[in-house]
Write a protein that binds this DNA or RNA. Structure first.
Lengths: 191, 191, 191, 191
DNA sequence: AATGAATGAGGATTCATTCAT
DNA sequence: GATGAATGAATCCTCATTCAT
């Protein structure tokens, strides 16, 4: 058991535990003790590495957005045509990973938290900007109004996700299909 | 100052104070004591009238949705044509009242709370169902696919609201206009 | 509904409700509100008539002992011979009424309360003295040591009651029979 | 001052403080705060080690019965003959330790608590069963009806203790002597 | 006589955080 | 690096009691 280089291991263990705990509880009402226990360490150590509960939460939020970003990148890289890229972007927003209970809970609390925490707000804006940018880039060759269409698609994605996430029963596929259909409508409309 | 019949007065004072306090704090982390203080009474009395924190919160959520519902009804009654009705529905979702800090905070926490609290989920579903129903009714005479279009418009509204609410600077007008434009696009597309 | 002469009615209703509530809960952890509700009035009125929770409790205790005393008197009056009187005294200590849940709870809490409350202690001592006195009187014609035997029988009654009350399953009959047997042993022994 | 291995120290300190506090107050109306303060720690720590007020109380009750049990064992071991064993058993029930204010209070509250708390009832039954068993064992060689006599002696002990405990002034010696006299009466009677 | 209204005081419990080891 | 120990502050909730009507 090495005594050095534990920091990154401990930190990521805590971040992972935080996400898992939020998912399990379904809310942000999670104690440092619970997180630390799940991560297999004492709560004192969690404090030692992060300096406070807020910082642990912030790191967890960043991780969630980073995970999502990675998935988007993977999807984009696999697509060849502009339309395929747009489709890939939309689909990745409704991937099974996005509907894991933990992710849903985290995402919802992210919105709520953004009202209070400037850091969270910054994070959320960053994600929105990236998605927007990616969408514009994908739509530019095929849309008459890339910016406007991107904005609308992005908002629609958020709204559909919100509703799908709320109705646990309904599958995410329907939401995705509706977003894709909207994309086609927008594109056709212009031709 | 009458000493009887205080219950409804106290209850509504508490509900109002709860909404205001959530708005001021920007989160659900509000204590019964703070709410009671804002409502001008002891926390014991708050408990007396509601029986517990959860019940106070639930009542506040109901009030928020009821207020919104009332506004929708008013807007609907003022509209004469189907298209005007649809426009009124959409516009009322982006009314200034909906963007009061208190309302935004409450709405966000509503989403977050719905993950945990079945009662909140029920409330939220009820609101969504009503809006959907109203939209379908308004679109029926003018849309080729009232149900599908209503669903899409509803989701778009939620997404646009979410984004507008997040960017405090941006005005709500832009979001509303975009929703209205989407409505026209959908209707034209069918012609 | 007369507006006068309510005091004795209200008072006895409260006392009765107190005993019933203690019995139902199985402990002294009973609130004035619960008692008043059971008695069909507001807690404020309970205070008005008794002046405080302690006084309500004290009155309830007195009532329990009075009830028991009355039963003893009835039993004594029905007995003709000294031996029958002693038997009646013992039997009345194990009557069904003494094993009603409410009575058991009240009695136990009476002992506990006597440690703190001088008034309760005084009450309890009074009851013990009366029973003792009655026993001595009954035993005098038939015992060689009325005082000593009475003391022993009294203690045995308390002990047997305690144990019978604790074992909800066991019937009170066994306890009574054992006390009666002890009586006979004491009397025979002397002969 | 070691900073590890405090748990047993803290736990026993809390148990001791609980007994002392109950004794000082003369009732079960003791707060965790008072107990913790007497034990020299914060109430939060008390909760940390026991998990709740009930568990603290239960541990205290167990300790009282364990102390009593130890004393009985010591007394039994010192006795050589059956009669001496029986005498020792009875005497240990009236030892000075049993009449310490704290012990009396605890014992009384034990009876009261047994009405409500199944765990307390179980504890009390266990103690009774042990004393009974010890008595039967001691009486077997010298009594014609070990079981019946043991039951009566046990009940008599409880009753005499109750009465002696109630009359703070009277010495415990009288109660013990009366129990011993009863023992002899029972044994002689059979001869 | 009677009560709804109202509260202050207190109590169990939780939790983030600090510290000594 | 790691943790058990420890706590102060805060929170929800209860309850006896008072008061105006």
């Amino acid at each position: 058991m090495p005594k050095v280089g534990m920091e990154p291991i401990r930190r990521s263990a805590l971040v992972e535990a935080t996400i898992a705990e939020i998912g399990a509880k379904g809310s942000l009402d999670v104690t440092v003790g619970q997180i630390a226990k799940r991560a297999g360490m004492s709560s004192a150590l969690a404090h030692h590495y992060f300096g406070g509960k807020d910082r642990i939460f912030l790191a967890a939020m960043q991780q969630i957005l980073r995970d999502f970003g990675d998935e988007v990148v993977r999807a984009l890289n696999a697509a060849q045509t502009p339309h395929a890229r747009a489709t890939a972007l939309i689909s990745s927003c409704f991937s099974p990973a996005c509907f894991a209970p933990a992710t849903i809970s985290a995402w919802m609390t992210l919105y709520a938290s953004a009202q209070t925490n400037p850091e969270t707000l910054r994070l959320l804006r960053l994600y929105q900007a990236r998605l927007q940018s990616n969408l514009i880039h994908a739509l530019r060759p095929i849309s008459t109004d890339p910016r406007g269409h991107a904005e609308m698609i992005a908002a629609l994605i958020d709204g559909l996700y919100l509703r799908a996430a709320l109705s646990h029963s309904k599958s995410a596929t329907g939401a995705r299909d509706m977003a894709l259909k909207a994309l086609d409508t927008l594109l056709e409309d212009a031709s």
